[in-house]
Design a binder for these strands. Structure first.
Lengths: 198, 198
DNA sequence: ACTATTTCTTGATGCAGTTCATTGGAAAGA
DNA sequence: TCTTTCCAATGAACTGCATCAAGAAATAGT
């Protein structure tokens, strides 16, 4: 049926980390709820506590901070088969300084904080699965930080193209600039330079 | 005895996350081995696989990358009661691109990859403990990345002083500059400016 | 199809931060 | 104690990137 077809990508994802029993699959099916967000709709708004852990089935989200001057700085994009939540706010149950919204119409599977704790209690295997999951996120975040303290904007842009090629045509450049930590104007000049040179 | 007094800070640390049974304490005592590194000694060298997960009892370590131009970029300092390992290399069992060495004589408690897996099997509670531990690391790493894409060097330096005040007198400025992603010269100018102004 | 909004490009100018070179001082080693 | 190595400070020239402004092109809404 419809619900089962929607949950399948998530079951596949877990399966790749550690195989699940039928009981565990059932728990996932019970606890994760599908939800559709329309383009530009907020998934999490600054000031609210992040109460959902999101797995993206289709579409694309971004998480960002708006600074004192009103500039937005994008911490993360997330498309199909990625996770996105404000982990700090989610676990410490305190108001988020970050926003999450949809760059396209986006279907997510989400589990509430309460139900994630229940999931951990009912199936400790998920302690391990989510540990592995966040270890991977940690490693890619660390790579990105390293890039940021050691490379020029041009190098960062090229390595963004390497990692996120499938996203470059879906995301406006102004968003990419904000992810790279440069202005849209300067990104435009970089692109201009690259089409001329090689 | 000596071993028990050395392991105590680690037991205290775990205890604050989730209380341990005596059996679990015993496992920790069996699996974690104390080791002393002298100032400038490598804990992990580029090209080797990271095989130890390190908890610092006393002293200070740094993890860094040396880029193509020979510049070093510091990803992390770790002093008393912090963890430091190349998590990517440790879990994926592949050669490290990062180095770890000692800024002072440093006593660590370390568990090998093999024994950590055994620990997880013998006491699944540690799946959860290490999940929480890495969630916290993830959150602080994300804060730092946000700082880096949204703030000036001066703002980053000030927030470094806020977070690591206890380290500023232990660490040479050239190391701090490399952590902030600026040159030692420019950091010197920033400090000069700040002593004059307020 | 038309309008409004958003996104991309390009130029001129300014500043934050780098690079290179030099000096003085402090710590570490013998 | 003397030497060597490391570290901090500072000047001058340079560059990567931001800012402001304005126009062109593409997208979305009706």
């Amino acid at each position: 049926d419809i619900i089962h077809s929607q949950i399948q990508p998530l079951l596949d994802y877990f399966q790749k980390v550690i195989p699940l029993s039928n009981d565990e699959k059932q728990l996932v099916t019970n606890f994760f709820k599908p939800r559709l967000y329309r383009k530009k709709q907020y998934v999490l708004q600054e000031g609210d506590v992040c109460n959902q852990f999101n797995f993206i089935v289709r579409g694309c989200l971004r998480m960002y901070k708006v600074d004192d001057k009103g500039n937005t700085h994008i911490l993360q994009f997330a498309a199909e088969n990625w996770w996105l939540s404000n982990i700090g706010s989610f676990h410490e149950r305190k108001p988020s300084e970050l926003n999450i919204d949809a760059l396209e119409d986006t279907m997510v599977l989400q589990i509430s904080h309460e139900n994630l704790l229940l999931l951990y209690i009912n199936a400790p295997k998920f302690d391990r699965i989510f540990r592995v999951l966040i270890e991977n996120s940690f490693v890619s975040l660390q790579k990105r930080l390293l890039q940021n303290i050691s490379s020029t904007a041009e190098e960062r842009y090229n390595s963004f193209l390497d990692s996120y090629l499938h996203l470059t045509n879906r995301i406006p450049q102004t968003q990419i600039a904000s992810f790279l930590g440069i202005t849209p104007e300067f990104l435009s000049r970089l692109r201009n330079k690259q089409t001329k040179k090689p």
